[in-house]
Design a binder for these strands. Sequence first.
DNA 1: GGTTAGCACTCACCCTAGCAGAGTGCTAAC
DNA 2: GTTAGCACTCTGCTAGGGTGAGTGCTAACC
Lengths: 343, 343
Amino acid sequence: MPLSERKKQILRAITHDYINSAEPVGSRTIARRYSLGVSPATIRNEMADLEEDGYLEQPYTSAGRIPSDKGYRFYVDALMDPHKLNEAEIRQVQSTLRGEHSQMGELVHESARLLAFLSQYTALVVAPNLSHGAIRRLQLIPLDEWNVLLVLVIDPGFVQSHIVETTRSLQVEEVARINDFFNRRLFGVMAADISSTLLGEMREEVRDEALMAEALVLLGRGLGSLNKEQVFLDGTIHLFNQPEFKDIDKVKVLLNILDNEKVVWDLLNDTLGNSGIRITIGSENPHEGFQHCSLVTASYELDGHVLGKVGVLGPTRMNYERVVTIVEYIAANLSELLTDAGR
Amino acid sequence: MPLSERKKQILRAITHDYINSAEPVGSRTIARRYSLGVSPATIRNEMADLEEDGYLEQPYTSAGRIPSDKGYRFYVDALMDPHKLNEAEIRQVQSTLRGEHSQMGELVHESARLLAFLSQYTALVVAPNLSHGAIRRLQLIPLDEWNVLLVLVIDPGFVQSHIVETTRSLQVEEVARINDFFNRRLFGVMAADISSTLLGEMREEVRDEALMAEALVLLGRGLGSLNKEQVFLDGTIHLFNQPEFKDIDKVKVLLNILDNEKVVWDLLNDTLGNSGIRITIGSENPHEGFQHCSLVTASYELDGHVLGKVGVLGPTRMNYERVVTIVEYIAANLSELLTDAGR
DNA sequence: GGTTAGCACTCACCCTAGCAGAGTGCTAAC
DNA sequence: GTTAGCACTCTGCTAGGGTGAGTGCTAACC
C-alpha cells in the first residue's frame, strides 16, 4: 500500500533533519520545524506506522526515529529534490578540470580531489581501463645500448611508457623500421585486441626477420602492464568529521578495507557497463564492513563506452541530494573532456 | 656533569619499557623486569635525579616516569643499540625494490609502501627533483595534426611526457631534425641548466628557422612542469594504532597537516644536502603540531648528489632502534638501485 | 655515604547511584 | 481522525567512594 502524502512529508522531514543533525528526530522537533499543520501527537501516530512498515527505526525505546535503509531508499527514489550547485562551485569544477594537465592520468586524479572537496566525503575514482582504448601511437626510443623506451599513446591521450631491455643494441634505421611497422599495423587497434592472435599474425609477417620478432617481444612485455587499473582515493580524512565514525575503531576498519585496491575496484565496478547514477545504501552493499555506508557512483564515458567510474562514499546518513548532483556533474564533465581531447 | 653508568642503565630501561608499553614506568617495574641489582627505592632516588636533570618527566604526581624529549635525545645519541633486520625482512626489501618497475617513479612509491609496512608507522618520501638530473633523451613524437608528445628521459631512467599543442602540423623529417638537434645539444645537460641562458643560445643558433624556434617553445613548456616535486605518503593508517592518538581529534589535526604537500616537503627538506640519518624529536621539530611526533629521515643519492628523502613519522615514543635501521637500509637500497639503473 | 624497608600520601581510573531531559505510547476527550 | 495529558523508559551527565599503582620522605642498615 502506497504511503499517504502526509507520511511522505513526515518521512522526508525526518530524513532531512537526521541528515543535518545526526540525532534521532522526535515528533516535537518535526512539528516545530516543519509546518505540517498537525500536532506532535498526530505525527507520533504516523511515525509509529512508518516504523511498522520498516521505513523508520528507533535506536532504543523512547528515543526519536531515524530512517532505516528502506527509508533512505524511498527517500532517494521518490522524495528528494535535486540540489543545485552554485556559481562558485561550477566555476571551480570547470577551472580545475579544464586546467593544464600534462597527462590524462592527472585529470582523473584531480577529479577525485575535486569530488572529495565538494562533497566533503570520501571520493573513489577508477582510472580508465586502457586496454579498451584505441592505440594512437606506439614508438620505441633507443636510450642506450641495452635499453629502449616503449611509449604508448592511447586514445584520447593517455601516455604509458616502459623501459625495456634489449638483447642487443639497435640501429637508428632499425628502430625507424620497427616504429613504422608497429604504427602501420596497430594504429586504431584496441589495446586488448593485440593479444596473442594479432601478435601471432604479425609474427607470421616478419617470420624471417629476427629483429622484428624481438621487437614484438618487447611490445608484448610493454602491453602486459596495461591491464592494471588504478584506483584513486581522496578525502578519507572527511570520514573523521562524521559523528557515526567518532569511534576510532570503526574508521580503522573502514580504512583498512579501503586500503585494498581490489575491494574498492569491485565496489565501483559491480555495476560495470551500467551507466548513469547509482546509489547503494547500507545493507544493499554486498561487502560487509560497508553496512553503515552509502555509495553514490557514476560512469564516465567515451563514445558511449564506459571508461571508468567516479564515486562518493559516506555514512548512510549522507547528503544524497547534494552528492548525487556533484557526482553526476563531475562524471559528465569528465566524459566531455575526454571526448574533446580525442578530437 | 655526565650521567653515571647506573643512571644510563635506568634511563635506557625506562625508555625501552615505555616504548613497548606506552604506560608510565614505575620503579618497581624496572627493578623487577631489568636486573640492575638494586631495590626499587634506589631506582626511585635515581629517577628523581634524572627528572631533576630533565631526562624524565611525570605525567602527574605519583605516576610512573616517561622520557622527556631530552631523554629521548640522549637515548638516541648514546644509549640505543642498532636493530638487526631479519632474513625475511631483508628478502622482502630486496624483492620488492628490485622487482619490475616500468617507471622509476613507481620505485619511489614502492619504497614508501615498504617503509610504512616495515616500520608500522607513517612513511614520507620525496620523489627525486628531476630538474637536477641529466637529460638522457628528449624526443618529440607527432600524434596528430595539432599535437605532439614530448618525451623526456632523465637519468637514471625517469620518464616524463607531455602532450603539447603545435600551431601547425609537423612533417616527419622536421620532427627528425628537431629531435636530432635537441639531443645533440642537450644530452647530458642538467634539466635545471636548460633555463633561459641555454635556451637563448639555442635560439641564436636557429634564429633563421621558424620551425626550430617553435620547437624550443614546446620544450620550454615541457620543462616547466619538471620542478614539481612529488611527495608520497603511506601508512597514515598506522597512526591509529598508537595509543597517543586514540583521541580522534589529534589524528585529524595531524592528517590535515600531512594533507599539505608543502609542509611534508619542508619537513623532510629542512635538512637538504645533509646526508646520513637524521632524527628529529618532538619539540625539536619546528612545525608545531608535530610536538608529539618524531621523524627519522635519510637521503637517497646518485653520484654523491642528494636526489630525495625518505622518512618515517611516528609518536615521540617510537621504536627508534628499529626505525633507524629500516630507514637507513631502504635509503641505501634506493641509492644503490638508482646508481645501478644509470649504468 | 650509599642503600633499603616502611609508610603516608596523591592521583587516575572505575563503578555506582541519582538526576534531568527528551521522547514515546496509551487513554480519553474533542 | 486529531489532540492534550500523563505515566513510563531510556540515555547522558555528574558526583562520590573505593582501588591500585606509584611516589617522596624518613629512619634504619651495611
